[in-house]
């Protein structure tokens, strides 16, 4: 039974449709979605309606959270004043555009999903805003997977898909306690774990405009990183027509890798 995992649709209805067609071609039994249905893109209501009508189990992304709770991310979530100002413009536009039922749907989304030995989150199990980049320290990555209790952690948020296997983890510890003269030695062995980043359907940042998502076979543990062409000029035109910043259209057409992320990807805002 294969599953498809999609993430970061960002109001891009054209991309979502193309990805759903591609999923249809792959005999997938279940689709999961890792959030960020809205933000940046021109069709937030249509995207939410599609995900809802297909009963796709979905976790809440950082954009979904901000839309329902008010923009609460601090400036530390943005790498620059310029990125922050654009993020706020997109937030304001989306906030005015979405229908009450869209907001209600986003509000009831869970932060995490667990199915058998699989966990699904938007950013990381700690926080929707945390970026689990492929180069993040292996021990940090292992901690995030162990925190879910699952063997495979699906995440999004970075907009660049990847698969990361963590194996043969071993840590040796010596502990000396007050009142105990001898030093205790512990050997901790970490089990095989895997992080699968689903990329982004609606705002890819891998260097091409194509939508990305993943197909996973829990029985064989095979992962396919899928890249799907779609009519991105149509989405770009809609971005400009709807009055969203034109730079979003330019970025979308390039699939730019210049990710808008804070300098410290594991930084978690206290707000």
């Amino acid at each position: 039974m294969k599953i498809a995992v999609i993430s970061c649709i960002h109001g891009n209805y054209e991309a979502l449709n193309a990805v759903l067609s591609d999923i249809d071609d792959h005999k997938v039994e279940q689709i999961y979605c890792l959030g960020d249905l809205v933000g940046y893109g021109p069709h937030p209501n249509a995207v939410v309606e599609m995900v809802r009508s297909l009963n796709i189990p979905t976790v809440q992304g950082c954009w979904d959270e901000d839309i329902i709770e008010g923009l609460n991310a601090c400036e530390c979530s943005y790498p620059s004043i310029l990125a922050e100002q654009r993020g706020k413009l997109a937030h304001t536009w989306t906030d005015q555009e979405i229908h009450p039922e869209t907001r209600e749907f986003l509000a009831q989304l869970p932060m995490t999903l667990r199915v058998d030995n699989l966990a699904f989150v938007h950013g990381s199990p700690n926080n929707q805003h945390e970026y689990l980049l492929p180069e993040i320290d292996a021990f940090t990555a292992m901690e995030r997977v162990l925190g879910t209790g699952a063997d495979v952690l699906f995440c999004g948020h970075t907009h660049v898909p990847y698969v990361r296997d963590l194996s043969d983890g071993l840590v040796k510890v010596q502990v000396k306690r007050s009142g105990v003269s001898e030093t205790a030695t512990q050997i901790h062995v970490a089990p095989l774990k895997r992080i699968i980043n689903a990329g982004s359907v609606g705002e890819p940042r891998h260097g091409r405009p194509n939508a990305t998502y993943v197909i996973y076979d829990p029985e064989s543990a095979e992962v396919k990183l899928r890249e799907v062409e779609y009519d991105y000029p149509k989405t770009c035109a809609a971005i400009i027509d709807k009055g969203l910043p034109a730079i979003f259209a330019w970025r979308l057409a390039r699939g730019l890798e210049y990710a808008e992320r804070a300098e410290d990807p594991t930084h978690i805002c206290e707000r």
Binding site: R164, G169, V171, Q174
Partner: peptide, 14 residues
């Protein structure tokens, strides 16, 4: 004291 630690990691990208 974390005196020693190691892990294998493999990353696959597009």
């Amino acid at each position: 004291n974390l005196v020693q630690g190691s892990m294998q990691t493999q990353v696959t990208m597009l």
